[in-house]
């Protein structure tokens, strides 16, 4: 590792600023993220500061499964963050979709939309688990295991890439199909 890289890594580790984004969560993980910032757990003493703007943040802390309506917002916020950027998925829903997996308005975990660097399980993830997850991410950064993902802009496709469903546009633009009984009976 070059000296310059070492200095950059050191600077990155010292004060990770986070942006918290609720991508369709039930609020449980969100209040636990805030609880981690308040006096009992107090991650601010390690330089972790909650920011309001994606342009000030290094780490995007996401909670909840990605709903269809929030998907393009999440991508947009991810795009607005400066490089290098890291994403932490807090909670089971954010990691895999959890209890909401398979619901018609849920895309799945955060990683179905943007790349994720750390997964924190739990329903909800307790503040201790959140701190542990953030520390593990920082340790991985220090040893060079976690690297920011350099990837091109994510093209937004409202129905997802491998979607088995029929796109609503197709259904809406074919009024001639509406007449007569369908041969498919469920």
């Amino acid at each position: 590792m070059r000296v310059v890289d070492r200095i950059v890594t050191w600077a990155r580790l010292k004060s990770p600023w986070i942006l918290h984004f609720n991508s369709g969560a039930c609020n449980a993980c969100d209040i636990e993220v805030i609880a981690a910032l308040t006096p009992r757990y107090d991650v601010e003493r390690f330089g972790v500061v909650l920011k309001g703007s994606p342009r000030h943040a290094d780490v995007l802390v996401c909670s909840g499964p990605v709903t269809r309506q929030i998907k393009d917002r999440l991508v947009r916020i991810y795009e607005q963050m400066p490089q290098p950027k890291f994403v932490v998925a807090v909670g089971t829903c954010a990691s895999s979709g959890g209890v909401f997996d398979g619901l018609y308005n849920v895309m799945g975990g955060i990683d179905s939309v943007i790349p994720v660097h750390a997964y924190i399980p739990g329903c909800p993830a307790s503040p201790k688990a959140i701190i542990d997850g953030v520390v593990k991410l920082l340790t991985a950064l220090e040893s060079g295991q976690a690297v920011p993902v350099e990837r091109p802009r994510i093209d937004y496709n409202p129905m997802g890439e491998n979607e088995n469903l029929i796109a609503p546009e197709q259904l809406l633009r074919s009024p001639q199909k509406e007449e007569g009984p369908s041969s498919d009976v469920l």
Binding site: L171, E178, S182
Partner: peptide, 14 residues
């Protein structure tokens, strides 16, 4: 969604 279109969506989803 018209009713037949919604039904079609449900069938393909299942």
């Amino acid at each position: 969604y018209s009713w037949p279109a919604l039904r079609q969506l449900g069938i393909s989803h299942h």
